[in-house]
Write a protein that binds this DNA or RNA. Structure first.
Lengths: 341, 341
DNA sequence: TGACCGGATGAGTACGTATTCATAGTGTTC
DNA sequence: GAACACTATGAATACGTACTCATCCGGTCA
């Protein structure tokens, strides 16, 4: 007793299969009474149009693929946002998560088989050449937070450079004269842009900004780099970290070594994870507008945007205790640095 | 210039379409030389089998659906684990996330259309009747961490009752004589089981264990309930919270009010989120073996397990600072309560 | 040498839908 | 009342694959 088909419904309702198909896909072409009879018959048989067969005919699946790294709080948040956004537009999300960059090739092969309506590539570690290989297949693509491929395929990302600058200026406003940028993965374009934005902004104030890589965008990497930082000599005034998760690890690593944040050193993050607002850290960070980014990405995907359509969405600075030493008096406590942006 | 089909390849290779199809689906039936010729022709044309058409014929999509709540750190972790597990078995994951329980009906309708190979329902807020409605369609289902439907459909979950007991016994071992259980959503079966396990275990020691609901499984709910707790009168020795995320909020709420954890009150969580291990909280919690759970769920799904096949996987206690007051001397600091389980 | 067997391949069909084309029916206009 | 426009419907086909069945061919055995 398998699923009822449109033919079963046609027999039940005493009409042709074509009429059943029309009743579901273009109801305005079917007479009122007929349509009701078809609907009743369909209800009785528990009929649902078979999306697979429909896709075969129409060559549109209503499914959008998303390639997303398998770990990291930020990506998981992005995933939820994309899923919600697609659901709003009647699409489904086929998830491809991957651990290491090599697996991306397998994923791309799979994507190809499913004739998806589009593909969102969300990762900093997908190589440029891998993206390029997909592009000619005619599959609409959008790169998510992967500014390196901007120009090759439509992309959407937060304004990393401006965000880096915003955070840097905040540190200057908090009297930092000596800042160290702690990056995640040096080759990641987001890392580079955030650093470039920060270095330029700090340069305008005559503040130098060396770069140090933690080696990964993870809590553990941040925790591990703390020791190296302390071994290097005296701490700078401010540590500007390229990602919240790394910053959490770094803060914990520092405090385990007896260094207090923000009393001994100011720390900032980047991403605006929910945990940044949790009192345990209360981290100053650049909040990525995940929902807006997801919305923009889906937009570009479904309207088949031009390859050079780069959507850059501004982030917002969240100021927390991690850059607010106990002694500091701030005029407007809710958002003291609002004017900076 | 659309995609090449098996017919195009057949022409190019000078064989029939049937041979091309065989070369890809059952290569052992095709002679060595022919197969090579087909493969070369396919490469030249960039041919990939169309999974949609294959599904139509074989009525197997190789796609498994997952209905997962749109928020909550725990669910996101589950999602990543499921995706990885399915990828290992050559399946894809079609994601359906939902905000409110009503949306589940829409999701189920969508699921039905895609003729998925299986469906994983991961949520405590999916009503029993909704699950039951899906069951008769013949679609293999597995309920994930939703013990309420055990017996109706195959289910997989952590041993909530035993976990609750384990945590409770740990609190007793830490000299708690007065414990309050802070639940998330009272109607959630996970909540009930964890509470029941805890209450039974505590009862054996003559320790009472009242129940208080935070109203949601969220940081904010935990934060908000802190005030109510303090207004109720003197704090108990230990607060046993039904979920890590709630516990984080509760701890922050308490500390904002000047109550120190663990010095003034011990706090435990449940789930074992990565953040529990972060030094900011260092929470004692029952770690759910997410990967093992995901693996078990996929297993049951693909082998079409019996409806009464209930997979209950044990969790492990993680002991953190949140139940280790400064004065306490512990014999084996790495895992002092290992014997408890 | 003829019957037979097994492997390799081709012709044809089915999966369930959407859509094109043809046709029957119903008014409408001069 | 005939020619016409228009709506509602049915018959037939295509989407791309997998699989059944039939065919062919070289080798084997009596």
């Amino acid at each position: 007793m398998s699923r009822a088909t449109s033919i079963d419904v046609a027999v039940e309702a005493g009409v042709s299969q074509a009429t059943v198909a029309r009743a579901f896909s273009r109801p305005e072409l079917v007479a009122e009474g007929t349509r009701r009879r078809v609907e009743e018959a369909a209800d009785r048989l528990g009929y649902r149009p078979n999306a697979i067969a429909r896709s075969l005919k129409s060559s549109r699946t209503n499914i959008v693929g998303a390639i997303v790294p398998a770990s990291g709080e930020f990506w998981l948040r992005v995933l939820a946002a994309l899923s919600a956004e697609l659901a709003d537009r009647g699409r489904q999300l086929l998830l491809f998560s991957f651990d290491d960059a090599e697996a991306v090739d397998d994923v791309i092969a799979a994507v190809d088989q499913y004739r998806l309506d589009g593909l969102i590539m969300a990762s900093t570690s997908i190589a440029q050449q891998q993206v390029v290989r997909v592009a000619p297949t005619g599959l609409p693509i959008v790169a998510f937070n992967q500014p390196a491929v901007a120009g090759l395929v439509p992309s959407v990302s937060v304004d990393n450079a401006a965000g880096g600058a915003t955070v840097a200026e905040h540190l200057v406003a908090r009297d930092c004269r000596d800042v160290l940028f702690v990056g995640g993965v040096e080759s990641a374009s987001t890392d580079q842009l955030r650093y470039a934005g920060a270095a330029r902004a700090l340069g305008a104030y005559g503040v130098a900004c060396p770069y140090l890589s933690a080696g990964a965008f993870s809590y553990d990497a941040g925790h591990a780099i703390a020791a190296e930082l302390l071994a290097r000599g005296p701490l700078p005034d401010g540590l500007m970290v390229a990602a919240d998760e790394v910053a959490f690890g770094l803060i914990d690593g520092l405090e385990a070594a007896g260094v207090a944040v923000p009393d001994d050193v100011l720390v900032t993050g980047f991403d605006g994870l929910p945990q940044a607002a949790w009192a345990g850290y209360d981290l100053t960070t650049l909040v990525q507008p995940v929902d807006a980014l997801a919305s923009a990405a889906v937009d570009r995907l479904l309207t088949d945007a031009a390859p050079d359509a780069d959507g850059v969405v501004p982030g917002t600075l969240r100021i927390g205790r991690s850059t607010t030493p106990a002694g500091l008096v701030v005029e407007n406590s809710s958002s003291p640095d609002r004017a900076e942006r």
